[in-house]
Amino acid sequence: MSAAANRKPFDAGRAAYLALNIVLLAFLLAPIAIVIVFALNPTPFISFPPVGVSLRWFEKFFASSDFMNALWLSLWVAACVLVLSVVIGGACALALARGNLPGRTFLTAFFMSPLMLPAILTGLALFQSYLLAGIGRPIWGLIMAHTLIAVPYVLRTTLAVLHNFDHRIEEAAAALGASPARVFFEVTLPLIQPGVFAGGVFAFIVSFDQFPVSLFLVVPKSETLPVVLYNYMKFDLDGAIAAASMVSILLALSVVLAMERLIGLKAYVKL
């Protein structure tokens, strides 16, 4: 048989599939490319083709105490939200999957409900509740609000892992002499950990990027980065916004990569 005869016939379906993927990828990446161009271009407006390369917007971003305070606050809040939502979401998922609770379906839907409500309403409702309760708008109120939104992500990923979890692995451990506590720490926890931490990464990013919920809950001088950026944009629509976006993207990316290195998100999960 000749080599030519062996060549695969042109597959229109496959070509269309490939083209669709390329288009989707371009659609996802194009805005980032524009942000990069805008961030590096010295003019205070988007001009194409760019007139040069300059770091002036990055300098402006890093020199601004407003931006820096907001950045640190956002990171700090996101870190707290990560820890809280991992603990709460993980515990909830275990209770829902294992606890034999009455009304489990309802409870699951209930815990997922923050995702279904428009976040802006969640923010406004919490804002009013806080004011009515007379507690003002403390930073922990903001963290709680973000956690509320982030917990469903952890719940989802953990439930997914628990769903595929072979209960007999825990029984095997028990039969081998592991007490219930040791079964949990030696077997259950390590096995659901990838799901919990994948949810944790989502939680971090959901909090770090959170705008609608934060909008009403931040107080003057303690505003998170997305809120500061939004308000900055109303007055100065310059490259500092793009520089800030780049920094945000890189930070979020490095958190994901760090988590992946530290925890090994896909080390032993068949995804």
Binding site: L215, P220, E223, V228, N231, K234
Partner: peptide, 8 residues
């Protein structure tokens, strides 16, 4: 003075 610059 507590100045709120965050819309809305």
């Amino acid at each position: 003075v507590q100045a709120d610059q965050a819309f809305p």
